[in-house]
Amino acid sequence: MGKQATRVIVNGKSYARVVDARLTLADFLRHELNLTGTHLGCEHGVCGACTVLVDGRTARSCLMFAVQASGCKVTTVEGLAPDGQLSVLQQAFIDNHGLQCGFCTPGMLMTLTELLRDTPDPSEQEVREALTGNLCRCTGYAGIVAAALDAARRLRGAAAKPGAS
């Protein structure tokens, strides 16, 4: 019952599958595409661990069905470091102790990727407000906020220097 064709572009690569309509986007990424970087915590839209970008906007992938993402461009945490080269934000997480167990980290990274794209010079309050939808149960958030602000600084610095990557 309820089989449906879906075609989703994930991290720049097109995938066509016939799936159960009730398959969430999160389970589609993890079980159909083996992209297990997207984590599932609560599976009812509270913890934010499963946050991905859908057409450039953050969404909880446990609250979307894979069929709803048909025709959409999805970016997961794997898409942040396509050639194994960590993004500026990811490196800032390491440098600022922005993670301990790492379970919430993929969702944090996706939310902050959207924030830093839309708000290159966020205040600490803006970072904290952006992170209200992502729960971390070990770091206490201070390191995550510091990482976000550090990444913002580094990205602005890179943007100010023409030719710098």
């Binding site: 309820g2 159960d20 309509a21 009730r22 398959l23 969430t24 389970d27 079980h31 069929v67």
Partner: peptide, 18 residues
């Protein structure tokens, strides 16, 4: 209960219309 991918389905089965 209808799941062929055991353990990965949260909602009960339904037909999807768009």
């Amino acid at each position: 209960a209808g799941g062929d991918d055991v353990g990965t389905m949260k909602p009960a089965p339904f037909e999807y219309h768009a």
